[in-house]
């Protein structure tokens, strides 16, 4: 607890909050992508991220340099996400939503067990591609790792945005999210668009996992807490809004970090309950979140 308020300290807390927030934003966006098309929250999102992060660790353990391992992991994550949708979700896609939710919970438990079984329960160190040093900007020491994490996460978010905004496939995926029946009439193979959405969600999760692991260390349960933050972020931004997920993630990262640093009783231990309190407050006061909205429609 700082005795006196210092701007440099405050700015430092904000920047490290933004780095953590970028990770929450990635995972929250993954949740939103799946929610928009499949209409459920994918509870296995965190374990999918953990599993793929372990795959990255395995590559590096075998001697592959960081970035090739990173790229290879994203490819595997994409294929894995597509596979999960095709094999596990597709057979039950027309069943009530609760059936799909239970499937994602089953996947959570299965992947968690599988991760522990393959790689063991002990905590592992995970390399960061960014040095553990800091640069001084205007009297504020900013961690290079924080800058790198922020840029990687937000860079991928921007790439995804460009994809959805400017490509035919992106347009078709948005169309499917809004109106799957009409999309079929346009000749769109809706099932494959859903699978692509799961693939992208898995890629976002893998990035979140690989960016989080150097700080929180690699173990089969590492993403459970991050997923709760991401869930709170998605609800804060509006569960059906991609922009909301990103803003919600960044906002949550900064707020939680500042509360932890400046509000005595929150400290380190009460960060998670604070996130849950945000979740509850949003659901009670404004269930559509900051950016979730009803569409204007004239009949």
């Amino acid at each position: 607890m700082p005795l006196a308020f210092a701007w440099s300290d405050f700015a430092q807390q904000v920047t490290s909050g933004l780095a953590a927030g970028a990770i929450y934003a990635s995972l929250a966006l993954a949740l939103v992508l799946i929610y928009q098309t499949t209409n459920v929250v994918n509870f296995a999102q965190g374990e999918m991220a953990t599993f793929t992060t372990f795959i990255a660790w395995m590559f590096m353990d075998r001697g592959l340099p960081y970035w090739p391992a990173f790229a290879l992991t994203l490819l595997i994550a994409f294929a894995g996400g597509v596979g999960v949708e095709r094999v596990l979700i597709r057979p039950i896609e027309h069943r009530p939503e609760i059936v799909i939710v239970i499937m994602t919970i089953g996947l959570l438990i299965a992947l968690n067990g599988l991760t522990g079984w393959i790689w063991g329960p002990e905590v592992k160190a995970f390399d960061s591609p960014f040095p553990n040093s800091s640069v001084i900007v205007g009297g504020v020491a900013i961690s290079v790792r924080d800058i790198g994490t922020f840029c990687v996460c937000l860079g991928v978010v921007v790439l995804l945005w460009l994809f959805f905004r400017f490509t035919t496939l992106g347009l078709a995926m948005r169309a499917v999210a809004f109106n799957p029946d009409a999309s079929r009439l346009m000749g769109v193979r809706v099932g494959w668009m859903l699978a692509l959405g799961w693939g992208f969600a898995a890629v976002l999760g893998a990035i979140a996992g690989m960016m989080a692991a150097p700080t929180i260390f690699l173990d089969p349960d590492m993403m459970i807490v991050v997923l709760i933050y991401a869930f709170a972020a998605a609800v804060l931004g509006g569960i059906d809004s991609p922009v909301g997920a990103v803003v919600g993630g960044l906002l949550l990262g900064v707020v939680i970090n500042l509360l932890g640093a400046y509000v005595n009783f929150v400290g380190n231990e009460l960060r998670l309950p604070t996130a849950l309190a945000v979740l509850l407050l949003v659901l009670v006061i404004r269930p559509t979140g900051l950016f979730g909205r009803r569409v204007v429609r004239r009949v």
Partner: peptide, 12 residues
């Protein structure tokens, strides 16, 4: 597609 623009509907 009520949420998409006129042009995006035509593109679809």
């Amino acid at each position: 597609f009520a949420e998409l623009s006129v042009w995006e509907n035509l593109r679809m």
